[in-house]
Design a protein around this nucleic acid. Structure first.
Length: 224
DNA sequence: CGCTGATCATCA
DNA sequence: TGATGATCAGCG
């Protein structure tokens, strides 16, 4: 999609940009940025997020860091239904399957990424052509104590399973607010993990995702 | 391959 | 019909 040099130097500047794109359609914003809008997202699944990244000046790339490192802010788009309910779970980060000695919630990638999130709601109904989908008013969220506790509980349960060689027993049904699901280009992608009796195995890469109920609560806090 | 950005599509 | 498991594109 291309790169965008200008990056906001502070949160106020970032939120000004957020306000500027609120209410625009993907088509209108894409035109400003000289980007072509796909007919659907069957192939370009990450297009919405990349468009918003470009518009807000987020640092592109595949670095396992926050989108705005200087501001300590992570950017997430959130596709909503007509009733303003999340249509998809939210990808958080890759799930580590090896090199787990001394790993702890406090220093985990999940906690770091969710410490401060800029949520940008977007219309997500599939019957709306991408060019006509409207961008909502983005907002900053930081997990409260209760939310932190829920996230930590799930993270620890899931990481315990990974450490104990039970990654193959993990399904998306585990975890109240955080789940683990496959995260790869296809089923052929394999990575190292721990198997039964601590034996090394190879398995599909996994990622952490926030359940829709959890992001729904975040929306409720802000928009009532 | 690892990781980002995510949504798709099948089946219970 | 909604959630789980699978998949698509790009980059270092």
């Amino acid at each position: 999609m291309g790169s965008f040099a200008l990056s906001p130097t502070n949160e106020k500047e970032l939120m000004k940009r957020v306000g500027d794109i609120a209410g625009l359609t993907f088509g209108e914003l894409a035109a400003q940025l000289n980007v072509k809008v796909p007919e659907n997202f069957k192939r370009e699944k990450g297009w919405s997020g990349q468009l918003i990244e470009l518009a807000l000046g987020a640092s592109a790339g595949s670095k396992p860091q926050q989108d705005f490192p200087e501001l300590g802010i992570e950017l997430k788009t959130l596709p909503l239904s007509y009733n303003n309910q999340p249509l998809e779970t939210t990808y958080v980060c890759y799930a580590p399957l090896t090199g787990l000695s001394g790993i702890h919630w406090e220093t985990s990638n999940v906690k770091n990424k969710l410490q401060k999130v800029l949520w940008v709601p977007i219309q997500g109904e599939r019957e709306i052509p991408p060019k006509d989908r409207i961008i909502g008013q983005g907002f900053i969220w930081q997990p409260n104590q209760r939310q932190q506790q829920l996230l930590q509980q799930d993270w620890e349960e899931l990481m315990d399973m990974i450490c104990l060689g039970k990654v193959e027993q993990i399904t998306a049904r585990i975890g109240e607010v955080l789940q683990i699901r496959p995260k790869a280009a296809n089923g052929k992608a394999l990575t190292d993990a721990i198997g039964k009796d601590g034996r090394p195995i190879t398995t599909r890469p996994r990622g952490f995702y926030l359940r829709k109920n959890f992001t729904q609560h975040i929306l409720d806090e802000v928009f009532c």
